Simulated assay, not measured.
Amino acid sequence: MQTSLEDWYVSYQINAYISDPCIMAVIYSELHRNIHEAFDKAGVEIMSPHYQAIRDGNESTVQTKI
């Protein structure tokens, strides 16, 4: 669900239910890793306003496979 359109980015919210709340931290970690990897695979940088403000024209933050 798209929750807001900020000055420099779009905010999204993912809602999910799990049967074992004891593994919630692991689920969040895997979810965030999978999102990051999917964006990397598509060649899309995930930027934050704080990081973008200090960019100096350096290389993309998208990981390249060697």
Rank of each mutant, 00 (worst) to 15 (best):
A25E: 02
H50F: 14
K65E: 14
A16Y: 08
Y12R: 00
H32F: 10
I54S: 07
A16M: 03
N34E: 14
E6P: 08
I46S: 08
S29C: 04
P21E: 00
S11P: 08
H50L: 15
S29G: 05
S4R: 11
D20A: 01
T3S: 11
Y12S: 01
S29F: 01
R55N: 06
R33K: 15
Q13R: 03
E30H: 14
N15M: 00
K41Q: 13
R55I: 05
I14M: 02
I54G: 04
Y17D: 03
N15Y: 00
I27R: 07
I27T: 08
H36I: 10
M1R: 07
A38T: 12
Y17L: 01
H50P: 06
A25P: 02
E59D: 14
L31D: 03
A16K: 01
V26I: 11
E6G: 06
S48C: 11
A25I: 01
I27Q: 05
I23M: 02
D56L: 14
D7I: 08
V10K: 06
D20R: 02
E45Y: 04
A42R: 06
C22H: 07
E59V: 14
V10I: 10
K65S: 09
C22V: 06
L31F: 13
S60K: 09
S29V: 01
S19R: 01
S4C: 06
A16I: 03
E30Q: 15
Y9W: 15
M47E: 12
I54M: 09
H36P: 06
Q63D: 12
S11R: 13
